[in-house]
């Protein structure tokens, strides 16, 4: 069976064959077992497609379902437009915003370090002294730190003022 014969048989089955050709095809079907087998196979396929496809009910209303599809299409179009716009901007201008952001971050960090240096918190005075008579006084409001050393009290160069240093 060639392709033309198959097409003609399919047209006969679908009822699309001209009336003048139908008797000849009917005779051919009656005489040819292969043609009958093919016709039966197509008839079964048609019935399977028509009645065997499972229904696919939508979980939402028809309007909502299609509105989702519409939104996805619009989103894709906008993404494409944005990508095209990005491609239109020169590379150095695309780098401008992150570079400027980095600059601002660096500036902020510098200002913060300038106004709040790492060691500006209280208790930053580290005094390494051999004597135990030393003390530290810090006035945060005035921004002054006094470190009092007992030197040279024990060297004979100074009076032994001792406890009357403090008012």
């Amino acid at each position: 069976m060639n392709n033309d014969q198959e097409l003609k048989l399919q047209a006969f089955l679908d009822g699309e064959l001209p009336a003048r050709e139908r008797p000849a095809v009917a005779d051919w079907l009656a005489a040819d077992a292969e043609a009958r087998a093919l016709q039966q196979e197509w008839a079964l396929t048609r019935s399977a497609l028509a009645g065997g496809e499972p229904p696919r009910p939508l979980p939402e209303s028809r309007e909502f379902y299609w509105s989702k599809i519409q939104r996805e299409i619009l989103r894709g179009e906008k993404a494409g437009a944005r990508a095209a716009a990005r491609r239109a901007v020169p590379w150095w201008r695309r780098l401008l915003v992150p570079t400027a952001g980095l600059a601002v971050l660096t500036l902020g960090l510098s200002v913060a370090l300038n106004y709040w240096p790492p060691g500006r918190q209280p208790h930053v005075v580290e005094t390494a002294l051999a004597d135990s008579g030393a003390f530290t006084y810090r006035d945060l409001k005035e921004g002054i730190t006094l470190v009092w050393l007992s030197y040279p009290a024990d060297s004979g160069l100074a009076d032994d003022a001792g406890a009357d240093i403090i008012e």
């Binding site: 240096p117 790492p118 002054i144 006094l146 470190v147 030197y151």
Partner: peptide, 14 residues
């Protein structure tokens, strides 16, 4: 210690 501008570090003794 840190010594920002405007602040004083004073060390003293007898």
């Amino acid at each position: 210690q840190a010594l920002p501008k405007g602040e004083l570090l004073v060390t003293g003794g007898n």
